[in-house]
Amino acid sequence: MTLLDFARGPALQAALIIFVLGAVWRIVGALTAPWRLVPANPREGALSPAVAALKGVFVKMWPHKPFQQAGLFTFVNGYVFHFGLAIVVLLFTPHILFIKGLTGLNWPGLPSNLIYMVAVITGASLIAGLVHRLRSPVLQLISRNDDYLSWLLTFLPVVTGLLATSHLGARYETLLALHILSICAFLIWFPFGKLMHAFLFVFSRGMTGVRMGQRGAEL
């Protein structure tokens, strides 16, 4: 079995199974705990819980004015690599085919050259994020191993993907295999670390939305 066959076959299979199992485990485990939401008599004219939850999810997409300056880098850089990752993952045709193979869903992709550009920007943005993390005393204090591992496992697929498409460093099939293996590593770690915020942020924002919404307070 070649490395590529291993990557496309058993490695990907195992990684996806662990990913789905772990992610569902964590979400179900967190949300089937007793809720312990303090009930409150909502303010007259307050948003309904569903609307407040949704509002919470959306309002948090951009910082309030006082935090914009201090958080400018965090937010802008965060957006750059999140959008970058989304574009690369969801709009590169080989990736779409991968997703189609798993889910049957299909949509048009973007030109590959554009994707390479976005991937380069994404990689640069991730590096900038890491440098920021290493230089900020606050982030140094609150960062855990999870933060660095999650960073690495997000960064590697971007780099290996770029190397593979540009045939740099090794033969294409080896690079492609490494790319797929790096994604496997990402998928395996995903449910257990902070990468899960990709799913959990909805609940976290939504719950604060409900709490503040019923009070008629800002989100």
């Binding site: 965090t74 937010f75 982030l139 915020h197 959990l200």
Partner: peptide, 11 residues
């Protein structure tokens, strides 16, 4: 939901 979601962004 809150304790599981922190991304250590420092905001």
């Amino acid at each position: 939901a809150h304790l599981e979601s922190c991304v250590r962004c420092g905001m």
